[in-house]
């Protein structure tokens, strides 16, 4: 228990150092302009103190409060609250991920059960796996001819590989004794699949799914910035246009927190299916 308290103190200390260095970095360098034509100063926005670049902590706090106080506002087709933007992104990630699972898990089963198929498909998987999902974007836009579907496709293609490989690995490493027992009990192929292999491989499959979800969440932000559909990525891009770093930092924090929650969810799922031999 004492160790736990120690780590908490250390975490808080780190946070304080971080915030303090932020505070130092964001101190306004240029005060209200002196000796400048007041009209010119006003046109330059220098009649009020202006920090160049990094927002101060209090500005940051105000931004966070403003965004969180009304996360679901809708001020037109290009200006929606962070809650709505998150919902768009999560929807896309969810759909792409679900489709990937639909393909990867059955295919992974086949690869895991049959060494021939494994060897046949392996070269393709090895070539396709390391391709950055965003590299698919131009091709997707050109062939699918729809930007919303293209970003879902990109999510699909990036989350399919970890799940596929993990499923195949989990299935092929199920202990032979269990399969032999199933055979002596005259269980059918389907029954063996669902009642022996699936539960045995579930922890490994879920590890793959967890990795996939992490990648998908990384990629959606980039895809939305590229294609500009509503979503967290679009929010970052739109505030970047306005050089509003406070909003960009806010979005970065939100992306981080949501990513962490998704990871925790999969962690819990994984623990639920883990068994002790």
């Amino acid at each position: 228990m004492r160790e736990r308290a120690k780590s908490w103190v250390l975490s808080l200390l780190l946070l304080a150092v971080l915030l303090f260095s932020w505070h130092l970095a964001s101190l306004p360098k240029s005060g209200p302009a002196t000796g400048m034509d007041p009209e010119y100063a006003k046109m330059m926005g220098l009649d009020k103190p202006k920090s160049d670049g990094l927002p101060t902590l209090s500005q940051m706090g105000a931004t966070v409060r403003k965004q969180l106080s009304n996360p679901f506002y809708d001020a037109g087709s290009n200006d929606k609250g962070i809650g709505i933007q998150l919902a768009y992104s999560l929807g896309r990630v969810g759909l792409g991920f679900f489709l990937a699972a639909l393909v990867a898990i059955p295919l992974g089963f086949v690869i895991g059960l049959s060494p021939v198929v494994h060897r046949a498909l392996n070269p393709f998987i090895q070539v396709l796996k390391p391709i950055s999902p965003l590299a698919w974007m131009p091709l997707a836009l050109y062939t699918i001819k729809d930007s919303a579907t293209s970003s879902i496709f990109v999510i699909f293609i990036c989350s399919v590989w970890p799940m596929l490989i993990n499923t195949a690995h989990g299935v092929s490493s199920v202990r032979r004794e269990w399969l032999n027992v199933a055979r002596t009990l005259e269980a059918g192929t389907m029954r063996t699949c669902f009642e022996v292999i699936l539960p045995a491989a579930a922890p490994v499959i879920l590890t793959g799914a967890r990795i996939s979800m992490g990648i998908a969440w990384l990629v959606i932000v980039a895809a939305e910035m590229l294609v500009g559909n509503l979503g967290v990525g679009y929010f970052v891009w739109n505030e970047w246009n306005n050089l509003s770093l406070a909003n960009v930092i806010f979005a970065i924090l939100v992306i981080g927190v949501v990513g962490m929650i998704l990871d925790l969810l999969f962690g819990a799922l994984q623990r639920a299916v883990t068994f002790v031999e």
Binding site: G45, N78, N238
Partner: peptide, 25 residues
């Protein structure tokens, strides 16, 4: 507003009215 250009009004005003600061004083 953020729904359209997402820019400070003084900047747009200088562009549209043609009375602007050129950056050199």
């Amino acid at each position: 507003p953020a729904n359209y250009l997402n820019q400070p009004v003084p900047v747009l005003e200088q562009v549209l009215t043609g009375k602007y600061a050129d950056g050199l004083g």
